[in-house]
Design a protein around this nucleic acid. Structure first.
Lengths: 187, 187
DNA sequence: ACCTGAACACCGTTCAAGT
DNA sequence: ACCTGAACACCGTTCAAGT
């Protein structure tokens, strides 16, 4: 598609992994998508594991950048938190895809170690941002902030998973609203 | 292992699918686990799809029975709700496995239709029980009960997913505690 | 009734060979 | 520098054949 094969491969691999996971990511299909032969992929990436590592790494880097943007563009603490679920909604909007790292979290047993690490960093990045935002909003105190940040992350990931399993994005919205009504997130 | 091959196959398939998903369920490995050849599996089940359908169906039937038991053995509404996360904890206790239907929910795009249906019934059964329990406990009113039941289900599934992705069962407990502290579940 | 070996079209991966 | 065809050991599945 683009002019940079390595870039095209990573982009196509990201989309495929968000729909089919690491195990379901087919090197042959991926190559066809990019317009080269499967063997050619191995010129750009030494293995499927290395490709997935690069993709997962950039996935959390992009997520970190998005979160920074939300932070900088909003000064009201509750407003920042209101935007968090939007980033997870975007995957569903994109042909019912899901978070790469949630899918790969499920595939834990079959994941190469380096991929596992990048997947965990994604969660770390999100939890750190949430903790910062929750503390700033006064939703939690210093002592419970970490646990609450993890809880919000897990709950939002769970909402995305459930909505995907029904291909129903309105269910995602219902779930997030219900989290707010229950007090997990500021209303 | 047992005396009933069909039973052994379903049990082994359930455990494998809880660890590797539908896509990661290998008919050859499964056959080896049961002590027969891969081709022999097709005497008992016409296809991988049919096997997975049977497994997923019994999975929600067993879950429904477990939930009924919790209901009958406890009369205090909050006490019943306190037991709900225990059923999802059990999978993690069992060698860091996860809910068959959460894993298959992620695999939505690659799931045969019949399997998809059974996966959805699992969620339906859990949500129906939760709604009943939440209404009985007075946590919610008739109007918000359905959404709240779905929210609890999604959040607990998300907690299990996050804990699995770190192979850390204490993280699961932390998350459930935090849900309670936030007000999603009765403390 | 229950199981099997051999075959089919797939898969990720390797590698020597092409331009 | 970038790509490829052919081969390897895998996979789910089929089927004719065994007991």
């Amino acid at each position: 598609m683009g002019t940079n094969a390595r870039e095209d491969i990573m982009e196509a691999a990201k989309k495929a992994a968000q729909a089919h996971g690491y195990g379901g990511l087919s090197m042959r299909d991926l190559a066809a998508e990019v317009g080269i032969k499967a063997a050619s992929l191995y010129y750009h990436f030494p293995s499927k594991a290395e490709l997935a590592t690069a993709v997962a790494k950039r996935y959390w880097e992009d997520a970190a950048a998005d979160l920074e943007k939300i932070w900088d563009e909003n000064s009201d603490p509750d407003e920042r938190l209101r935007f968090f679920p939007v980033t997870f909604r975007r995957a569903l909007e994109n042909e019912n895809r899901m978070c790469l790292c949630s899918f790969m979290g499920a595939e834990y047993d079959d994941l190469p170690d380096q991929v596992k690490e990048e997947v965990q960093v994604f969660a770390d990045v999100n939890v750190a941002w949430l903790k910062k935002a929750l503390l700033a909003s006064g939703t939690v105190d210093e002592e419970t902030g970490e646990a609450r940040a993890k809880a919000v992350f897990a709950a939002v990931a769970g909402a995305q998973l459930m909505a995907r399993s029904r291909a129903d994005i309105s269910l995602y919205d219902t779930l997030i609203d219900s989290y707010r009504a229950a007090g997990l997130l500021p209303a």
